[in-house]
Design a binder for these strands. Structure first.
Length: 205
DNA sequence: GCTAAGATGGACT
DNA sequence: GTCCATCTTAGCC
């Protein structure tokens, strides 16, 4: 698909993000995540997410209240929360709900749809550029952030602005699977991981 | 002040 | 399958 076809779509607006975290998580699937950087675009279709809530969720970074790291979770729907995971990888979240709600949706995987060669360059390690359209390019929260060049400088970014935003794509009817979340030990019983069934870019494990 | 655990990924057996 | 890199936080001395 041409870049102009993506950019003709409307951005998700503040009303979309201000709803409850599980609703937003489910509705983020299939939409186009966009990072515009120095004039070039990286675009991915969101295929896997997890919801985290301050209310009833011990696995959420916000559960015990505000810290320096999680402050942007309290900015209200339509912001980005980026944190450093295991001291190594960045993870990107979409903040939802009202100001001070402390809820957010972790983006676990996207399907690359535009700017794939730049994503492959961003995922270079040991001087080896990643093979394009390999599923390992973006099939995990840290991999997605690296491919889209998202780091702590993007923490608290406003998703209604010009750098990072999400474009509407409601057209396709995909089968959505709901499961327990991955890689956590508390509140494991909550069914708050959602992914598109037929996507090969859904994370492993 | 110290230590353990963590919303992970990559290298290796 | 196992191991480990390395930063933040919480909980305990």
């Amino acid at each position: 698909m041409e870049l102009s076809e993506f950019l003709a779509r409307p951005k998700l607006n503040i009303e979309f993000y201000k709803r409850d975290v599980v609703t937003v998580a489910q509705n983020l699937l299939n939409q186009y995540f966009v990072h515009k950087e120095s004039g070039s675009y990286l675009i991915g279709k969101i295929v896997e997410v997890e919801a985290y809530s301050k209310i009833d969720d011990e696995a959420s970074h916000s559960f015990k209240g505000r810290t320096k790291r999680n402050a942007s979770m309290f900015l209200g729907g339509g912001h980005l929360y980026v944190y450093l995971s295991y001291g190594i990888n960045y993870c990107a979240n979409i903040v939802t709900g009202e100001i001070e709600a402390g809820d957010a949706v972790l983006i676990r995987a996207v399907e690359p749809v535009y700017g794939v060669s730049k994503m492959a360059i961003n995922r270079t390690s040991n001087n080896v550029v990643f093979k394009e359209m390999n599923r390992d390019l973006t099939n995990g929260p840290g991999k997605f952030s690296k491919a889209f060049n998202i780091n702590l400088t993007h923490d608290a970014e406003n998703l209604l602005g010009e750098n990072i935003f999400i474009l509407e794509n409601y057209s396709l009817r995909e089968e959505i699977i709901s499961t327990e979340r991955i890689g956590i030990s508390k509140s494991k019983n909550l069914i708050r991981r959602f992914y598109i069934n037929n996507s090969k870019f859904v994370s492993k494990r």
